[in-house]
């Protein structure tokens, strides 16, 4: 009985820790990446929420923010980068393009939605989403990690 209580608490603490120490991957594709940089910047400063350690290598990171249009030429490379990330790993699909093709959905060389390539945890709408929206997505992801809704 006491064992199980201890186990739950540890698990919870672990989940809480995971949520609050996300290391995003510096990975910009298109216009949305500029808004992602704004979210990092001094005005929005998302370091407040414990996700400020932007990593340049997929092997150090555990959050991939797909910010921009996914083209057919880039998609296999995104998959490869995703595969290189260590578990636990999460994906935020930022903007209309990454979520569903956006304004380019009728084009011939655009993948309509990054969820065809990698599993996505949170979608953010907007073209581009405002930095506030991205921060909200981050908060949502953190909450669902902490409450155990998202596991990888």
């Amino acid at each position: 009985m006491t064992d199980s209580i201890l186990l739950t608490t540890l698990d919870e603490a672990l989940r809480w820790g995971k949520g609050k120490s996300l290391w995003p991957f510096t990975f910009g594709l298109a216009c949305c990446a500029i808004e992602m940089m704004s979210a990092m910047g001094p005005d929005y400063d998302w370091a407040r929420f414990g996700a400020d350690v932007f990593r340049d290598s997929p092997r150090h990171a555990d959050l991939m923010i797909v910010s921009g249009t996914v083209t057919k030429k880039m998609a296999p490379r995104i998959r490869r980068l995703y595969d290189q990330m260590a578990f636990p790993k999460y994906v935020i699909s930022m903007g209309a393009c990454a979520s569903a093709g956006g304004p380019y959905v009728r084009g011939y060389s655009v993948v309509d939605g990054v969820d065809k390539v990698v599993p996505v945890d949170i979608y953010v709408y907007g073209c581009p989403p405002r930095p506030e929206a991205l921060i909200q997505a981050l908060k949502q992801l953190q909450d669902s990690i902490a409450s155990g809704k998202v596991r990888h």
Binding site: K72, K73, A75, P76, R80, Y108, V111, V117
Partner: peptide, 28 residues
Amino acid sequence: NYPMDKKQYVNLGEDGEDKVSYDPKEGY
């Protein structure tokens, strides 16, 4: 006269170069 409805799919080959096919299972 380029057929816009005929989709092509791209994947990485063994040698790291792109591979194109008409089969949706073969790429993205």
